[in-house]
Simulated assay, not measured.
Amino acid sequence: MRTSTAQHLAALDALTARVFPDHSEYCRSALRDSGPGHHVVPLATSEDFWEDDGTRRLIVEDRYEAERDALAVLLDIRWGAPRILGLRDVLERGMSGEDVPEPWATLSCHVPDLYLWRAGERWIGLGVAQWDKELPFQLVAVVTTVDPP
């Protein structure tokens, strides 16, 4: 089932209102990744690509990027133009031994670029994630008080 931009916006609003777990709590599942100072939630998840010649994957990637961009237009109205944060460098820094805080360390493993807004004490981000070429794409939302590295 496809979700609409309005549904994504409502889910993001609910996420920004959610309290962060304390320092002793951590919750990671297919539905969310929450820890001290952050929440990461998939807003939409595609099908997988195990039996794809690459054509369908490109179409779905374009669709997920278009969904991110449509939602970003609405967030631009609220918070202005986003900062585009490239996370490949963050991944390389983490692999070189630098201590990269969450949620940035995990995000850098599967989100190449994140659209990022500052709203009060929180950072709000949108990205298109994919863990591997056969696995589904996800439109992910991030809310965190942890400054980007």
Rank of each mutant, 00 (worst) to 15 (best):
P42H: 09
Q7H: 14
P21D: 12
S46P: 00
L74K: 00
P36D: 14
E61T: 09
H23D: 15
R63D: 11
G80P: 00
L58S: 12
G80W: 00
A11T: 12
V19Q: 15
S46D: 06
S96G: 13
R28K: 10
E47M: 11
P21A: 14
V73I: 09
L71C: 04
H8S: 14
I59E: 15
Q7T: 12
L75V: 01
E98N: 01
R68K: 04
D33L: 13
A17W: 11
R78E: 13
R18E: 15
L91D: 06
E65S: 03
D48S: 13
L85G: 00
A10K: 15
V41A: 12
A14Y: 10
A30T: 10
E51L: 11
P42E: 04
L12D: 07
D53C: 06
R83Y: 03
R56C: 08
A6Q: 12
A44N: 03
V73K: 01
E61K: 07
P42R: 05
L74R: 00
R28G: 11
V60L: 06
H39V: 08
I84Y: 03
W50H: 14
S29P: 02
P42M: 08
A6T: 09
R78C: 10
W50M: 15
V41H: 09
A17S: 14
R78V: 08
S24Q: 15
D48I: 03
L58I: 02
T16M: 15
T3I: 14
F20R: 05
E65A: 04
R83H: 08
L58V: 08
S46Y: 02
L71I: 01
G97W: 00
I59D: 11
S96A: 15
V90R: 01
G80E: 06
G54C: 05
L87H: 00
Q7D: 15
L12R: 03
D69E: 06
I59K: 10
E25Y: 07
L9S: 12
D76Y: 01
S96T: 04
S34I: 06
L75R: 00
E47I: 02
S96E: 13
L87W: 02
C27H: 13
T16A: 14
D53R: 14
T16W: 10
D76M: 08
D33I: 09
F49T: 00
R68Q: 02
G54P: 01
E47T: 10
V60I: 11
V40Q: 01
P21L: 13
R63T: 09
G35D: 04
L74F: 03
H38G: 07
G86K: 05
R83K: 01
G35E: 04
T16N: 06
R18P: 07
S34W: 05
E51Q: 11
R56Q: 11
G97A: 05
D53A: 12
T5L: 10
A30S: 10
V73Y: 00
T3Q: 13
L85Y: 00
R88S: 10
V41P: 07
R78K: 05
L71Q: 00
A17N: 09
A70W: 02
G94N: 04
A11Q: 15
A6S: 14
A11V: 09
D13T: 11
L58A: 13
R83L: 09
A44E: 13
R56H: 10
T45Q: 14
V40M: 07
M95Y: 04
V40W: 04
T5Y: 03
L85F: 05
D62P: 00
L85D: 06
D22F: 03
